[in-house]
Amino acid sequence: MPQVSLTVNGKPASVEVEGRTLLVELLREKLGLTGTHVGCDTSQCGACVVHVDGMAVKSCTMLALSANGATVTTIEGLAAADGTLHPMQEMFREHHALQCGFCTPGMVMAAIDLVNSHPEGLTEEQIRHGLEGNLCRCTGYHNIVKAISAAWPLMHQKGLPVAAE
């Protein structure tokens, strides 16, 4: 079987996979990182969003072998070693931006990328458009939008690490 070598949350990993193995299957089933979720079979829900070489992608729509040599960050890789949450996670908690929590890992990963991609600022409209690839069936999105708005200054002005990558 082919081998894929990559760095996940700062740790090197080398795993045997099939050609058809999806990145999300590698993360969940081979590496035990079950924080990344699979919410649909049609690449629409975004629960599986992770960062691959700094890009927020749907790990259910990328082959594991396509990630050979890549640096991957999942929801498990965001908090600091002492448990301090990433500002986006903290703002999701602060603003009650989750209810059942199923979409949250993908939401947080997509939200961090959205903030990183807009150093010039983010309007509410841009945030709502930026979440088009992430579905939430509990919150109605309102508090997610608030949390992302609140995380923007924390990530850009206080000089915190933009993403724990």
Partner: peptide, 9 residues
């Protein structure tokens, strides 16, 4: 096109 994650790939 699509959404931000789709546009990355």
């Amino acid at each position: 096109i699509g959404d931000p994650a789709v546009r990355y790939r």
